[in-house]
Every structure is written in structure tokens, then in C-alpha cells.
Design a protein around this nucleic acid. Structure first.
Lengths: 253, 253
DNA sequence: AATATCAGAATGTCCTGACAAAGTTGTTCG
DNA sequence: CGAACAACTTTGTCAGGACATTCTGATATT
């Protein structure tokens, strides 16, 4: 028994701006996402079919398809041939994005602050050399920071940067997010490879995060790559597990 | 200074089968991925441009674009207007997929086995009701299993299933992966929402996983949704962190 | 009443065509 | 020689068209 489709109101896309630099498919996608989040399109609802949306609102079918695919990729919609497109049940959650922790916290209203506890020029050992795609012995910048959220210590962030960024100052790193700084240099982060795990905190981490000796910590190793596919940053991070988790939505292709 | 493009050999797509049910774009994508993995297309290489690939091999440009986009989404390629498409540096790693742990382990040659330590019909409390989209008090199946890899305890898997799957037997769950079982019922998993964290192991977990008292464990809560967008499974899993991590590739949209 | 078949509905795939935007390279001018 | 501009290159966006596949509901048959 197929749910009747939810016909979109005639003024649904009233605010779309065809002269905007924002692609049309993205505007459509954003508008639909808003409807899902405010439950105009509630969980389980079947969306008006893509051919009809295209005809009624003056979009080409590939443009509508692309907009819907964005939401499918985010896990908000599912599609089936013969049936149509449905809104996924369950709470709509924030999904992990390629951003720095600084930006994450800012975006969720948890005022981030930073203490730089290490800032030194060193040379790349084999692990770093492999991660950053540089030669063993190349100059790198080692930085260790403690990140606070609303004044509470949340994470110890150990990062290594290639020589082209070795001139980031202690001050800069204390006052801005790392990705913010990289962006001021015209570096666009495109990909991050991450490995998430857990272990017991070191002595130093326990102190920095105000955790009991040997407490469990959530860890993440990350290498980020720019728009040329080159590694720009390698990090080993350690989070207070009571305060931080990773939320990830997986979608089957 | 732009890298010269790597021209694909004339026989590069020789094995593609246009009569296959496998979509052409996926075949192209798979073939390109193979070339990246075997380093025919090495890290940093610039791929032959999409217009040329389409002309030379007889594919439409959107089909080529779609194939390339699949690899961009996987973090293997990056694209820039005016420059072209490049292979990302860094090791090509396995990326997390919407599969069960059983399938993960099988696929990586780590012979999975399972002990069922709890198997009982119960009723949904508020948390479970919210996760599964059922009513509080509805019938559910609670299952707790220990998963071994090559005979070593790896994870404690606590799962709750809605009543339609309440007839899975202890035997079935001991011998097959959960997602395998769901698939025999015609259920297609499409989306999983996951929350990854860490904490200290409970007494019971320490014993089941042969870990020291209060050892750090890696945790994951998961709710999986089917192709109608309905929740089909809620799990709370706990992993031995020395043996298991999550590898995730994030791609900027 | 139960089962099989068919038609309609909706997404999935692939193609052709056109124009825009961002980056690099080459040419011209001061 | 360096800066500015133009041309070229490559990806990004959008449209329109056609056909294939999967699913549901209606109808026909037993």
C-alpha cells in the first residue's frame, strides 16, 4: 500500500533565484531539506514525483534528480523505482563534515577557545613523511593544542603541517581554527581520511583534559588533502568521550 | 605548472560490456578505480579530460562525468575547472561501508564467528521506541552476541529488532551475519545513522572481550533504515580498540 | 476466492546540445 | 622583464529526449 504523494504547494520554490551563483539544483535541494527538517515533509511521506516537480516548477528533470540525489546522499530521502521517493524515518541529525573542530564547535554554539602547548619546527620521520607525502627529514611544523568548548577542555589536537605552512604563528593558532588559517593561504580542503579509535589517556592527556588517570579517550588520526590531491595536514587528536562523539550517516550506493 | 594528462590506452575499456545489467558509468568507474589501485594511474596523475574520454571511447559526457564523480565521492580523485581531474595522494584505503561487522570481517579475510549470549523477546522502552519508530511497549527481539575474528573476541554486539524479525532464531544469529539474515527477508539496508564514541568497559564487556578491568572500548550506536526509510535495527556495539578502528573518508561537496 | 497477467506509475540510465566559470598559457605593450 | 589582456582548456550547470527496469494495482482467468 503506497503512501499518497505529498504534492508540493505552488509557492514552494518561490524564493529560488535563477540568477544566483548558487546552482539551481542546490537551491532546490536546500529548500526540500528545509521542508524535511521543519516536518512539512514528515518522516515516511512520499515526495511528489520528479517528473511532475520538473513540469510544475519549470526545472529540467536532471536538475530535479540531482537535487533529490543530494538528499539521498545525506540519508534524508530514499528512492525506489515504481514507488517514488520517501522521507527517511528517525530524527534528522547533524552529519559529520569536512571541517575543523573549531568550526564544528562554533557552528553548534559551543564557544571554542584554544591553548597552544607546543609549537616547533621539526623534521618529518617516516610516519609523517608517508602521511604528508614529503621526504623523511623534510622540515615540518609540529603543533599541539588544547581545544576548549565553553571553557571546558574537550580535545588535545596534535597536528603536523608541511613546510609551506611552517610560518603559522603560535598566536594565529591560538586565535583561529587551523582550517581557517589554511584557507587564508588559498588552500581548499577537499578530502580527509580518518581513522577513529579508542585507548587509555596518557598522563599528559589526562592532565590536559582533566580526566582520571588512564581514562578512556576517543581518538582520531586524520590526513587532509587539498584540491590538487596533495596532503596538507596530518593530525592525531584525542577527545574527552563524555563531551564528544562522531555522528556519521552511511548511505548505500 | 599543470601535470601533463595521462592519456588512457586505446584498449583501456576493452572489458566493458554494454549489454551487462551493470550500468555503464559504474563499469567505467570500476575500471578507473582499478587503474588507481594498481598505480597505472599513480597519485598526482592528471586524468585525460572527460570530453576526450567520451569521444575516444564512445561514451556520452554525462556518463563519463558520472563515473568520475563516483570516484570523487570516494575520495580517490579531485577535480578543478581549467585544470582537470587528479588522482589523490596518499594510500588508497578501505572506506567504511554500510555493511555488518560480519561482512567486514569476511571481506578482509578475518574469519568471523559468533556466540549468542542473549536472545529474548521483550518490549520497547522509550529509547528503543524512538530509535525503531515503534510504540513504547511493542514487542521487540533483544540479542547480544560476541563476535570473534580468527577466534579472538573483537566486539560485543547488542541489537534490538522490531517484531517482524522477532522470529530469528539463536542458531540463525550464531551462524550468519545479521544483515545477511535481514536480506533473506527481502529487507534492503539503505541508510545507517551511527554515533561513535569511547568509554570504559563494563565488567561484563571486559570478560567477554578478555580486556583488563575498566579498559577503554570503542563504541558505536547504530540505527539502520530500509528502502522505505523505516528503521529495521538498532544496535549498541562495543569493540576492542586494539583490534578495531573505523576508517572514514570525508569528501567536501 | 486465489492466481496470473497486464497496464500504468515512477525511478534509473544514457544520449545530445549549449552555455558558464575558473584556471593556464600565450601574446602584446610599456 | 613584468604586467595586462586575450585565447584556450577543462570542468560545472542545465535543458530536452528516449528507452529500460521495477513496483503496484487493476483486470482477467481458473
Amino acid at each position: 500500500m503506497v503512501q499518497p504523494e505529498t504534492v508540493l504547494p505552488a509557492d514552494f520554490f518561490l524564493e529560488l533565484d535563477r540568477s544566483s551563483p548558487m546552482p539551481l539544483y542546490h537551491q532546490i535541494s536546500t529548500r526540500l531539506e528545509r521542508a524535511i527538517r521543519d516536518q512539512t515533509l514528515p518522516a515516511g511521506a512520499r515526495l511528489e514525483n520528479e517528473v511532475s516537480v520538473g513540469q510544475r516548477f519549470g526545472f529540467s528533470r536532471p536538475t530535479v534528480r540531482r537535487a533529490i540525489q543530494e538528499l539521498v546522499d545525506k540519508g534524508l530521502l530514499v528512492r525506489r523505482r515504481g514507488i517514488g521517493t520517501q522521507v527517511v524515518h528517525g530524527q534528522v541529525t547533524r552529519n559529520v563534515e569536512l571541517t575543523s573542530l573549531y568550526e564544528d564547535l562554533s557552528q553548534t554554539g559551543q564557544n571554542p577557545t584554544t591553548t597552544v602547548v607546543r609549537h616547533e619546527i621539526g623534521t618529518a620521520d617516516e610516519t609523517i613523511a608517508n602521511a604528508l607525502g614529503v621526504a623523511v627529514g623534510d622540515r615540518v611544523l609540529h603543533v599541539t593544542r588544547v581545544r576548549y568548548a565553553d571553557g571546558v577542555p574537550l580535545a588535545v589536537l596534535d597536528n603536523t603541517l608541511p613546510s609551506e605552512f611552517a610560518d603559522f604563528t603560535k598566536d594565529e593558532l591560538a586565535n583561529r581554527g587551523l582550517y581557517q588559517l589554511l584557507r587564508t593561504r588559498g588552500t581548499t580542503m577537499k578530502i580527509a581520511k580518518q581513522q577513529i579509535g579508542a585507548r587509555s589517556a596518557t598522563m599528559s592527556e589526562s592532565e590536559l583534559l582533566s580526566l582520571p588517570r588512564n581514562a578512556a579517550v576517543l581518538t582520531m588520526k586524520r590526513t587532509a588533502f587539498d584540491s590538487s590531491g596533495r596532503a596538507v595536514e596530518h593530525g592525531q587528536h584525542c577527545y574527552s568521550p563524555d563531551l564528544y562523539t562522531f555522528e556519521i550517516t552511511l548511505v548505500d550506493k
